[in-house]
Design a protein around this nucleic acid. Sequence first.
DNA 1: CATGAATGAGGGTTCATTCAT
DNA 2: GATGAATGAACCCTCATTCAT
Lengths: 215, 215, 215, 215
Amino acid sequence: MRSQPDTLDPSPWMPFETRKRARDEKRVALLRTAVRLFLEEGYHRTPLSKVAERLNITKMALYNYFGSKEEILAELFRLGSEQYEAGFTAAESMKGDGLTKLRQLIRAYVAIVTDDFGMCFARIDDRELSDEARIAVRRAKRCYDSTFRALIRAGIADGSIRPCDPKLAAFVIIGALNGIADWYRADGALSPDILGTEFALRLTEGYAMQRPEQP
Amino acid sequence: MRSQPDTLDPSPWMPFETRKRARDEKRVALLRTAVRLFLEEGYHRTPLSKVAERLNITKMALYNYFGSKEEILAELFRLGSEQYEAGFTAAESMKGDGLTKLRQLIRAYVAIVTDDFGMCFARIDDRELSDEARIAVRRAKRCYDSTFRALIRAGIADGSIRPCDPKLAAFVIIGALNGIADWYRADGALSPDILGTEFALRLTEGYAMQRPEQP
Amino acid sequence: MRSQPDTLDPSPWMPFETRKRARDEKRVALLRTAVRLFLEEGYHRTPLSKVAERLNITKMALYNYFGSKEEILAELFRLGSEQYEAGFTAAESMKGDGLTKLRQLIRAYVAIVTDDFGMCFARIDDRELSDEARIAVRRAKRCYDSTFRALIRAGIADGSIRPCDPKLAAFVIIGALNGIADWYRADGALSPDILGTEFALRLTEGYAMQRPEQP
Amino acid sequence: MRSQPDTLDPSPWMPFETRKRARDEKRVALLRTAVRLFLEEGYHRTPLSKVAERLNITKMALYNYFGSKEEILAELFRLGSEQYEAGFTAAESMKGDGLTKLRQLIRAYVAIVTDDFGMCFARIDDRELSDEARIAVRRAKRCYDSTFRALIRAGIADGSIRPCDPKLAAFVIIGALNGIADWYRADGALSPDILGTEFALRLTEGYAMQRPEQP
DNA sequence: CATGAATGAGGGTTCATTCAT
DNA sequence: GATGAATGAACCCTCATTCAT
């Protein structure tokens, strides 16, 4: 199709780059399609043929990008994990007391869990994964728990959060946040932003030392 | 074999009753085994042969009690539903203001969601069900949501709960409660009772008009 | 149910006879039900449970009367065969020339093939049978063919039937007669008698030396 | 592999065509094998594994060509139906009086019913089919009946056929013709052509206004 | 005789995956 | 890279039949 190399780019490696980029784009498209279908229909009820069909390619073409269905899922979890890492890092590195950081983390979490990859990480059964991948996912999940607990503890320590059981408080918050994935609709009225702000407020007001001013 | 009717035998139907009871017991054992495996391994990764194996019978014996795998799952959802109905009815019929009832409902919900059947209802993907069964489950789930919202609204009306968005508050509470199913272990330190009390307190303190006294 | 032996019959064997008769009646009822279902639904699509259901007994009770499903079918073929034997014997033993006998045979055949057992013999696939039974059935079928051919030959010999290929003529006649089973309905307008008379006439008029008078 | 386009190669689509043709040939081979086995052994007694075995492929390879066993059967009926349509259309469009056409139709019918697909249509139980396919088959069968009756009526009208009940006459003829499928052997002495001629004569001589000259 | 329970054989179908162009 | 074909592993389910009472 590309009969001539782009004349503005003299480099002979460009075609390679271009090709590689095209390949990466296809790979991403594949992952986006897969994650949507896995979320919409469930991992087991989504044959690879349906993924391919939605991409207008053949089932076998998928194997140029991934070695197995499980590998696709593992990659989705990895991408989800990346979302978490980014959001969590940002929230943790914020300035402010424990409560402020916690609220920021909640906002970040809402953004993550309303994103396809983040939602996949939160909702798809990780028992589908190979042992290795599953262990990594479990470790990551525990890590995210720990972050919540750490911020809560920090908040208690700095006086911004009322004394409470950090473990239980974290469970409550994370549970409520994960619950969003059960009913969130991208085409609904509640945007991730609004939800994030709302949940950041509501999920912490019970724990905050000072009640936020009521509207 | 029993050539003469034993006059002390209170009823000739006894054998029938006995056999029927045995059948029911087996049926229940089947359901208990199935729900455990479905929760432990996932519905799709649990062939009926494994269920049978754990019961020390052949796979085909299962078909004496259920017509299909999906029918087993549907029955599990039904039993889960029953748990909900019972707990919800009890909580709603309690005396007290909205907040009190809400707390009771939370305690009931924790008991339900830590029970195998209740947990199945909360966690297993209802898309596995036939259309008919799935519709019933969805309706039930919406009903449970409504109950939460109604109690919250009632609490706001009677002044026991601070003004808030009942829908969002219900999502927070239900999400946190469903989250329990993700980490609850029957052999763990936290009993459903303790969890119920704790969650009833923590999940409502942000909404309560008067803060509960801190320990 | 029968608390006392029939007082009019002093014989102690009568109960046995009675019981035996009851048994035979049940057996016949079973066969009648089976043949109806086999004809209506097809042998393979008729599980024994359906036969039992229509008889208001359990599937297992059937095994008190027959050792296997195939044995039931074999018995149905045997009963069908009896119908044939009777009808054929009567027709053959009639007085008259070949054509007259042939017409009588056709009438008899129509009666047979509109009877459940006769229809079963004609229509149900005899490959379902055990080797032994199937061989017997095949032999019988050949025998019936032979009878037709013999009568045709006799008719040709005695001048009542025009010279023709007896084999082919027999195929035509038998084929047309068996075809009745494909569309005959017991509750339809055409009774076996009428059909018999009509077919006896139409199927032979091409072969008759003298045309039957037209109405 | 072919590094340079062979300029003599008439078309780059040839490989595609070739592959498509190969696929079609395999598909047809599959159908031929299936119809033979279904006729020889019966539909229910022919597992797909046997069809595959005779084709020297695995059972699963069949699913590249058909979605289910029933779909194979439906296709066989469709092919059978095509045979009928072709033969019937040709016979109907012939010049000549009703009797001539009827005789031609009989010849066509014999050709059809001695062909594997036509025989399948005539003999295999259409209750195996899905509702949709079965309804289509039943409609086609009624249509073929009608054609016979119409020709007979036409023959009566134009004086080539003696007055008779067209419905009954059609039943006789069709029954006799379908009966051929019960005993016809492709390796036998009687070719479809001979049979067709013979049956066209014998099945109509009873109805013809003028008797065919006897040999 | 009759019943409920259990079993084993067998077949259709799905689907991920490998093979050969 | 991409494709069609083929394969093998499972799994659900039907149904005749045997077992134990």
